[in-house]
Design a protein around this nucleic acid. Sequence first.
DNA 1: GGGGGTACGAGGTTTACCTCA
DNA 2: CTTGAGGTAAACCTCGTACCC
Length: 217
Amino acid sequence: MDGEDLQLSLSLQTIETDLQISTQPSTSDVEMRMNPRAIDMNRIPTPTPSGFDVEDVVSSPNSSGGAFVAGKRTSAEREENEGGGGGGGGRMSDEEEGETTRKKLRLSKEQSAILEESFKEHNTLNPKQKIALAKQLNLRPRQVEVWFQNRRARCCENLTEENRRLQRELLELRALKRSPHFYMPVPATTLTMCPSCERVETSENQTPIPSRQQIRL
DNA sequence: GGGGGTACGAGGTTTACCTCA
DNA sequence: CTTGAGGTAAACCTCGTACCC
């Protein structure tokens, strides 16, 4: 194997390694499932105009009368909210709308930042963490849960996108390897060629070379 | 072993809210 | 200043799965 073949092989290895990016949930998911009902603090108190009293959730998880349940909404709650809605997402009657119209409250930057930090540590939450975070952010646990669900979804989208891109790149590189007379546009961050010495390098900090500069594999 | 109940996450949809031309 | 289009993300839904009784 000569130097150029080695370079290409290394690039392919890198890409193939990158393609192993997993979209599976973290181990915290498994941990949570090991003891899903260790804490039953999902009941949420009745909302007030100024928001939920999260303290109430923590201090009195077994108090009666809770129609809301974080995580899985109860069928009773669904009936309450759907009001004869049907498919497509639970429309409410005019009568109910005044009280239960879903208002979207944009999270503040501070709240988002804290949620992001928490997400970096673990992309799933056990009930205890959820309650604590909700308390810290003065949000409902359900809101924290929704945020994490949506965040995971976005994260997965990005990984899927990246995976597709790398798959395409891998196919291209493999095709190039098979056809020795093929000229490949430079993938800037991985392979560049020094215009003066015509050596292929893998520096990330090289200045971009003109589009006509191509690598002969 | 299997049914019912509960809880969770994934994936998809709806829609309030925001930005910008 | 107003308004409509398009984007973003919070809230919601269904479905599959795991666990317990």
